[in-house]
Design a binder for these strands. Structure first.
Length: 861
RNA sequence: GCCCGGGUGGCGGAAUUGGUAGACGCGCCGGAUUCAAAAUCCGGUGGUAGCGAUACCGUGCCGGUUCGAGUCCGGCCCCGGGUACCA
């Protein structure tokens, strides 16, 4: 027997491609280029997950398709290899992170090659390679030169468990994103990057990107631009002024008090003698609160009076100044004018502390809430009375500017990027400290390599692990000869991934991060595919660095990634669960909070659907039906190696693309893999006789007939269109339809099969290569021209029209194609149809709708 | 709370500018092959009624626009993701 043996043919072609460097990126710049990029993986110890091949298969299909369309394709892969897990493993076992990382990379590379991806393996990058991070450090020096990198004593998110600080984005609900450990606030000296400098550009340039709207929106929200005014409030009996930011300057007449954040620099000076103790106590309490506590307590507002008063510049009234932690020191100016009538938070606070409330916007008649935050007519506001909100804003800003007490202003939520970590396994900063002052390392001294150490824990004094390498830390300033200390913080994992897409263009280039002409040819990335979990972090940071590099003249485009697509998560197989306690079944909705609930795992055979719910077969017992995120603890992780072992890489690729739209979250189904495996078997048997292992007898060098051309060209049309639009599931369905049809043909023209094999090749490249060579072609099909479809072959001899009476289909008529557009003829034929006549009998025709090539609708009374 | 997505058979999902809802695959049912099974092949498969032609119902719910709505508009419900005192 000569059955379809995926393992044999896949190994054969993978070796062929590697040996012949089939996917080596072309050096010429004649042809149009296409740069298709995957988000490179962190090579974890657990190996490839079925989620990885999803995006990678999608980009691989595009890469293979574009090559056949005559593009020069850049399709690289690499390793985002710095990171916590290898370091934590090192702390536990003493194994150097480099060793762990190298081992994991070998495994990942093997797994990716086993799936037949058409990467150019000569362009692999590795962020932990000194030849790579040399340029990460180089870019840091550029940031430093431009004043975009600075040190600051900041209250940081310190995670004692991990022994490091975390960026705000890495803290979720007061816990570390990695590991879920508690995070506390702690003032520390840190490196910061001035991403806020680029807030405006990062926001504006989103507009022209072909990115998912939701991702753009997330970045917009993250940057958080708001337009309003800065206003000065003179403090009564003081020289000081309090500057506030507000988006509602039109409500200034309703500002009945002010609030400073506990950390505001004027709190000390303004507090009166009587209030000193109360305020000091309050400040202390606020400082001790962790992020988590702040969020939990956010419902109940607290604050204390400073004893001081400010003067509202609009009406010269004295209003009290309070301190409260519902005002955040790092947003706006850290102080607000409180307008309880128009702001829910201020209303809540005013109610609690019995402060006056004045409405300055007329709420709608049916308005029932407390603070009215909407727009409307201005009231109780002297010269603004009667104006609509937008007009009032303009007028008051004008007035403020004229009187020198305020001006129009734009504020961003975005904060500077906390860029240092107290870790070993990251890029060392190219910085030395001389006499306590930071000094950049000379470019010629790069890379600053990681020193060898044997204990990866932070030191007893709480310094980063690098401080253990004393010989490395203590150095000399080459310029002055003075003793200098190296920076012992390292860069966060995001650093290496901020520019890796540039390194692929010229991975060996040693005069800069990227070679100029290559950059000009290949950039921007035409298609970037990766998870939506990187919507803000990686994608915002990378855009920021890119813009800095643009300003430095290193890159020629303002944006790195032209088109972005997120693949949806693959969930575990569907699970059916019934809940039982003390022998009694429970409703899933009740079982949630209870103890000692027994979960009964069921299979599809045990259940049936009743109305909206699943129940235990033959009973009323409700059953939970849900697909869960794959996780080790749940035991529902699907291992790609096993799928490949059982069905082959082509089946895995094909199944992951056939599951549904790429962007969508979808559950795994082993039965579904079997389905596409059966399809590939049918392809095999269509061409190969399993008895003899030879080409089927009915495969001949004949001219295809009309029907065959029609079926083939329909497949070409559909597959081409669907690949262009990344609708891989329906493209595969079109291939299946072709095979179903072809299976019924008596004779199979070789030319038709050749074309079909080309259509199949981006999806199932191994089987396609095998069929291609067995059909008598000598070269690999990778650079064969993509089939063109011919409209002529798609024409039908007759056209079918559904016939509706009053919008309901009552029959259909077939008319010759040449008469298909003749309204009168087609309608006449329609009226002759038996069932249609039945409905026309005894009625009057009111209207006849004729949509050429589509439908007929006869409206009767 | 706010901002984005999304609700279509038993399941994953198809459906051009509004034009026959359910392509393709899974599952299920029936048949062929087989000593039997697996594999394979053929046929059927939204629900209800009917031997059948056919009819009625059907794309989360309620209403609207239209000759015609899964698709457009208004109001809700549910699920998923993001975000949260951002002045």
């Amino acid at each position: 027997m000569y059955e379809y043996d995926p393992l044999e043919i896949e190994t054969k072609w993978q070796e062929f491609w590697l040996r012949n460097k089939t996917f080596q990126t072309p050096e010429d710049t004649e042809a149009p280029k296409y740069y298709v990029l995957d988000m490179f993986p962190y090579p974890s110890g657990s190996g490839l997950h079925v989620g990885h091949p999803e995006g990678y298969t999608a980009t691989d299909i595009i890469a293979r398709y574009k090559r056949m369309k005559g593009f020069n394709v850049l399709h690289p892969i690499g390793w985002d290899a710095f990171g916590l897990p290898a370091e934590q493993y090192a702390i536990r076992t003493g194994t150097h992170p480099r060793e762990t990382t190298e081992k994991n990379i070998v495994r990942f590379r093997e797994q990716l090659q086993m799936l037949g991806f058409s990467y150019d393996w000569d362009r692999e990058v590795n962020t932990t390679d000194p030849d790579y991070y040399k340029w990460t450090q180089w870019i840091f020096l550029k940031l430093y030169e431009k004043g975009l990198a600075y040190q600051d004593e900041v209250a940081v998110n310190w995670c004692p468990e991990l022994g490091t600080v975390l960026a705000n984005e890495e803290v979720i609900d007061g816990k570390s994103e990695v590991g879920g450990f508690p995070v506390v606030r702690k003032p520390m000296r840190q490196w910061m990057l001035r991403i806020t400098e680029y807030a405006e550009q990062l926001l504006d340039d989103l507009e022209n990107l072909e990115w998912p709207e939701s991702t753009k929106e997330m970045q917009r929200n993250w940057i958080g631009r708001s337009i309003g005014a800065d206003i000065d409030f003179q403090v009564a009996d003081h020289d000081e002024k309090i500057n506030v930011f507000t988006t509602r300057p039109d409500t200034i007449f309703g500002a009945t008090y002010m609030v400073l954040a506990p950390e505001h620099h004027l709190v000390e000076q303004l507090t009166t003698e009587e209030q000193r103790e109360t305020v000091a106590e309050y400040k202390e309490k606020a400082a001790l609160k962790s992020d988590l506590e702040r969020q939990e307590l956010s419902k109940d507002k607290t604050g204390v009076f400073t004893g001081a008063y400010a003067i509202n510049p609009a009406n010269n009234k004295e209003i009290p100044i309070w301190v409260a932690d519902y005002v955040l020191v790092h947003y706006g100016t850290g102080a607000i004018m409180a307008v309880p009538g128009e702001d829910e938070r201020d209303w809540e606070f005013a109610e609690k502390y019995d402060l006056p409330i004045i409405r300055t916007v007329e709420p709608p008649e049916d308005f029932e809430g407390k603070a009215y935050t909407g727009l409307g007519q201005t009231i109780n506001s002297d010269f603004l009375n009667g104006l609509e909100t937008e007009e009032a804003k303009l007028k008051i800003i004008n007035w403020l500017e004229k009187n020198g007490v305020g001006k129009k202003s734009i504020n961003y939520k975005l904060r500077d990027w906390l860029f240092s970590r107290q870790r070993y396994w990251g890029e060392p900063f190219p910085v030395i400290h001389v006499d306590g002052e930071p000094k950049p390392v000379l470019e010629s001294e790069l890379p600053v390599e990681l020193p060898e150490i044997d204990d990866f824990q932070p030191t007893e004094s709480g310094e980063p692990p690098l401080a253990r390498a004393k010989d490395w830390v203590v150095t000399k300033d080459p310029e002055t000869g003075k003793t200098a200390l190296r920076e012992t913080n390292t860069m966060p994992q995001w650093a290496g991934s901020c520019w890796y897409y540039l390194r692929y263009i010229s991975p060996q280039f040693d005069e800069g991060p990227v070679e100029k002409s290559g950059e000009e040819y290949w950039m921007p990335v035409d298609l970037y595919v990766g998870g939506s979990e990187h919507s803000v972090l990686h994608l915002l940071y990378a855009r920021f660095w890119h813009k800095v590099l643009y300003d430095c003249g290193v890159v020629s485009t303002k944006e790195p990634f032209k088109k972005l697509v997120h693949q949806g998560m693959i969930l575990g197989e569907m699970e059916y669960t019934a809940y039982r306690k003390n022998g009694q079944y429970l409703r899933p909705s009740d079982a949630g909070g209870m103890d000692d609930v027994e979960k009964v795992k069921l299979t599809e055979k045990d259940i049936e659907k009743r109305q909206e719910k699943f129940v235990l077969k033959g009973t009323d017992i409700e059953v939970d039906a849900k697909a869960y995120k794959m996780s080790k603890s749940r035991g529902n992780v699907i291992n790609p190696d096993q799928v490949v072992d059982q069905f082959g890489a082509d089946s895995l690729r094909l199944y992951e693309m056939f599951m549904g739209p790429l962007e969508q979250v979808k559950p795994w189904s082993t039965k579904g893999v079997e389905g596409v495996y059966r399809f590939l078997n049918r392809v095999w048997r269509l061409i190969i006789d399993e008895e003899s292992g030879e080409i089927q007898k009915n495969v001949e060098e004949t001219e295809p007939d009309k029907e065959q051309l029609k079926v083939l060209h329909e497949a070409i049309r559909k597959v081409t269109e669907d690949i262009e639009n990344m609708r891989f599931n329906t493209a595969i369905s079109a291939l299946m339809i072709f095979v179903n049809e072809a299976n019924q043909w008596e004779k199979l023209p070789v030319s038709v099969l050749n074309t079909f094999v080309l259509l199949l090749s981006p999806f199932a490249p191994h089987l396609a290569e095998e069929m291609w060579s067995r059909l008598g072609n000598s070269e690999s099909l990778v650079y064969e021209p993509w089939p063109e479809f011919n409209e002529e072959y798609l024409k039908e001899e007759t056209v079918m029209y559904p016939v509706q009476i009053n919008g309901k289909v009552r029959g259909e008529v077939h008319v010759p194609s040449d008469k298909a557009k003749a309204k009168d003829y087609v309608l006449a034929q329609a009226r002759k149809e038996k069932n249609v006549q039945r409905y026309l009998d005894g009625t009057t025709v009111v209207k006849e709708i004729f949509v050429p090539g589509r439908i007929i609708n006869i409206v009767v009374k």
